[in-house]
Simulated scan of single mutants.
Amino acid sequence: MTEGNFVDYVKVQVASGNGGKGSVHLHREKYITKGGPDGGDGGRGGHVIVRGNSNLWTLVTFKFKKHFKAGHGEHGSKNRSTGADGKDVYMDVPLGTVVRDTETNEILFEITEQGEEKIVAQGGMGGRGNWHFKSATNQTPRYAQPGIPGEEAQVTLELKVLADVGLVGFPNAGKSTLLSVITSAKPKIADYEFTTLKPNLGIVEHRNFTSFVMADIPGIIEGAAEGKGLGHYFLRHIERNASLLFLIPADSKDISKEYEILLDELRRYNPELLDKERLVAISKSDMLDEELMAEMKVELDKDLKGTSYLFISSVALQGIQELKDKLWALLNE
């Protein structure tokens, strides 16, 4: 999937169908000149329904189609015949899609399961035909109910990537390189910051034919929680990850400080993110000799306060299997 095809935020207009009118009809047939009322009910207007589809990874289809209008219910007719219901319209979305009211920003619902269906615009009820209104004192009512109008709304679709492990780190920490080594994903890799502008997903194959999904999320900068850099456009993707892998390069000026800044950005965006299981990986560790690594371990044991960490190198393939094992253990505790 190319970056241009990854769309995770879009606004669409939805309109449900109107209910059909109830019929005003008096029964007439040969030899029955004054039959009673037999007008049928109007049909229900069509719903606009949001449906989960596990085969989709992006909201790109809504980039080109932004208006969804359901069919109107048909009017009732004689012999108590009910009009046909309006045709429902389905909007297929990836799992992890949040639907908001654009005007109030209120969350209406979330789609997290395959085939899950939620009505975003309810079709209007059909009106009742005149046969409902006959009584001892009014045996030939000449009125019926009109159908109820459908609903119109603008909604915002917001995709939060569903993955088992989310990669968190500053720009150029080596997240895309790690993803390309540990999975068969082919993210864009270059030696400048913000190479990754959209989340990338890859499947990590573990031992005994087991696997889990890893997401490479664009790099965090200080102030991301306030919307600086790519801000909320990528922080929301971290919310849906089961556990977090913090990636900090070995050539960083202060590994512990970088880790604290990353934690602080997550805390300010959503404190619940700190409840997730997390692991710290020191990347680019092929640049370190054993003596330097031993010195760093002493500092990290003191500064990371019990947080589990390990040294890896995506280029030299050092510590990759150990990383997979630790992530698998985190996910299955």
Rank of each mutant, 00 (worst) to 15 (best):
K78N: 12
V50E: 05
V89L: 14
E74G: 06
H72R: 02
G42C: 13
V98G: 02
G43H: 04
H47W: 14
A84P: 03
H67K: 10
D38H: 15
R51Q: 13
G96K: 03
P94Y: 01
G73V: 00
L108Y: 01
G39V: 11
L56K: 15
K66F: 04
N105D: 15
F64P: 00
E103F: 07
H67G: 02
M91E: 04
V93D: 05
V60C: 07
K63D: 15
G40Q: 12
K63I: 12
S54V: 13
V93W: 04
F68Y: 09
R51M: 14
I111C: 06
D38V: 14
G45I: 07
I107F: 05
V99F: 04
V48G: 03
D85R: 06
G43R: 03
V50G: 06
F62R: 07
F64T: 11
A70I: 01
K66Q: 11
V99R: 01
K78L: 13
V50N: 05
T61C: 13
R80N: 11
G71A: 02
G36F: 14
F62T: 09
V99T: 01
S81K: 10
K34E: 14
W57D: 15
T102C: 09
P94D: 03
V60W: 05
T58E: 12
E103S: 09
S81P: 00
E106Y: 04
N53A: 11
K69P: 05
R44A: 05
D88A: 03
N55Q: 14
D38Q: 14
V89E: 06
D85K: 08
D92L: 09
V60P: 04
L59F: 05
G42Y: 06
G73S: 00
H75P: 13
R51T: 13
H75I: 11
G42F: 07
T82P: 09
V48N: 03
D101V: 03
F68T: 00
R80E: 10
T104I: 03
M91I: 15
